[in-house]
Nucleic acid binder design. Structure first.
Lengths: 223, 223
DNA sequence: ACTCAATCCTGAGCGAACTCAGTTATTTTG
DNA sequence: CAAAATAACTGAGTTCGCTCAGGATTGAGT
C-alpha cells in the first residue's frame, strides 16, 4: 500500500537513518564540547533516540568517538599519501617525504586535542574486538604501510628494516601527538619534534655542522 | 599520660598510619584483581577509612594506582641501571646494554598487564599536575636519562642525537609494552619486538650479507 | 580545665556510563 | 489478512567514581 517501500525493507532504511542521526549528533557535540564535555544522554537526545538505542550502534562512548573520528582520520591519511607522492616527485629527501605524509594526520589529531588524544589512545590501547576500533586500526595500518613504502624506496634503508622503522615512526607520532607533555605545543612545534626524532632514527646523511655538509641531500643517493 | 607520645603530634602519626593502610590495601587488591576489578569502596573498606578519606590521599583512582606502581617502577629502574652497568662492563654492544637496562622495567610493567598498561598510560597521558603522577614522570625521566647515557657512550652515536634517540626508545617501550596488539605476547616476545626496533633505530653496524659494501657508512656524506 | 580555631574525617548523595526486561515495529508464515 | 516470529527500540535502574556539607579530633591560647 502507498507506493513502493522502495529499496530494501523499511527497517534497513530506518536503521540507516538512525545511524546518520547518531553520527551527526555525536560529531557536532564532540566537536563543540570535546568528548569529556558531552554525555551519552545529550547525544541520544540530539539524535532523537533512547540511550539504549545509542548503545546498539556504539557499544561504548569511546567507540562512538572512534566512529566519528575514523572519517577524518581516513581523509587525513589519503591527503598524506597524496602529499607524500607529490613531495617524492618533487625530489624531497626521505625525511621530507615522511613528514609530508604525516603532516595532515598530525593536524587531524591535533585539530581538537582532547578528541584526537582520546581517539589515538583508544585505538592503540582499547579492545580490538569492537568493530569501529577495528576499522580505525585498519586505517592505522594503512598509514604504517604508507610509511613503509616511503622508507623502502630509500636505497639507504634495508628493505627488511623498512617495516620495523615504519612502526617506530608510528610510535613516535603516537607519543608525540598525544602525550600530555606536548599538549601545550602548537602544530609546527609538534611536527618539529617529530622531524627531529625521525631524522635521528633514519640512517640518513648525519647532519654535521662541523663543516659544510649539504643539508637536504638525499643527494647521496645515486639516482 | 602513658608514656611519651613520641615523635611529632598524634595527628601526624595517625596520618602516616592511614597512608600505610591505604597503600597496603590498594597494593593487595590491585595485585589480586587488577585495577578494573576493584572499587574505591573496597579499598576504603580494607584500609578501614571512609571513601572521602581515600580521596584525600589520592585524588583519583588512577592516582592511587600510580602511587602503588611507582614503587615497583623505581625498583625496576634501579635494577635496570645496575644490569646495564654490568652488561657494559662485560662488553656487550650498545643494543645489548640498552636491553639489559630495559628488561626489568618491561618485566615490571608486564607483571600484571592490566595495571602496568594503565599505569603507563596514565603517566604519559594524564594530568602532570597530580603529585603522584609527577613522581612517576620523574622516574620516567630517570629511565630516559639512563638510556641517553648508554647511547652517548657509543662512539657511533652523535652526542647530540643520544637524547633524541633515548626518547624514541622510550616511545618504543611504551607502545610495545602497552598496546593491545601485543597483549597476548609473553615477556620474551615483547623484548624481542623491542630489540628488533631498537636495533633498526641505532646507527649500528648494519648486518649486510650482500658482500662487501662498507656498512656503517654515513659514508655517503663527504666528511 | 575550658574555649575555640584549625585540621581531618565521614558517608549520603550526585552524575554519568552502561544494562536489560519489557514493549513496539516489521517481516514472515499459514 | 491474522498470527506468529523476529528484529529493533526504550528508559528506568544499577554501578561506580567522585564531591561536599557537616561532624569529630586535636592542639594552642587563657
Amino acid at each position: 500500500m502507498k507506493s513502493r517501500p522502495a529499496p530494501q525493507g523499511r527497517r534497513e532504511r530506518a536503521k540507516e537513518d538512525k545511524r546518520r542521526r547518531i553520527m551527526d549528533a555525536a560529531h557536532a557535540l564532540f566537536a563543540e564540547h570535546g568528548v569529556g564535555g558531552v554525555t551519552m544522554q545529550q547525544i541520544a537526545d540530539r539524535a532523537d533516540v533512547a540511550i539504549g538505542t545509542l548503545y546498539l550502534y556504539a557499544s561504548t562512548k569511546a567507540e562512538l568517538l572512534i566512529l566519528v573520528q575514523n572519517q577524518k582520520f581516513a581523509d587525513a591519511i589519503d591527503d598524506g599519501l597524496a602529499a607524500a607522492d607529490a613531495a617524492a616527485r618533487w625530489g624531497a629527501d626521505t625525511v621530507g617525504v615522511v613528514l609530508a605524509m604525516i603532516e595532515p594526520v598530525v593536524a587531524c589529531i591535533r585539530e581538537q586535542p582532547e578528541n584526537g588524544r582520546t581517539y589515538l589512545h583508544e585505538l592503540v590501547f582499547g579492545d580490538p574486538a569492537e568493530p569501529h576500533r577495528r576499522d580505525g586500526l585498519t586505517l592505522s595500518l594503512r598509514l604504517e604501510a604508507g610509511i613503509t613504502d616511503i622508507l623502502a624506496a630509500d636505497p639507504a634503508i634495508d628493505d627488511a628494516d623498512a617495516a620495523t622503522l615504519a612502526r617506530v615512526v608510528t610510535s613516535i607520532i603516537h607519543v608525540t601527538t598525544a602525550a600530555t607533555v606536548h599538549l601545550h605545543e602548537n602544530l609546527p612545534g609538534i611536527l618539529d619534534q617529530i622531524r627531529q626524532q625521525v631524522t635521528a632514527v633514519l640512517p640518513h646523511v648525519q647532519s654535521r655542522d662541523d663543516g659544510g655538509s649539504p643539508a637536504v641531500s638525499s643527494g647521496c643517493s645515486t639516482m
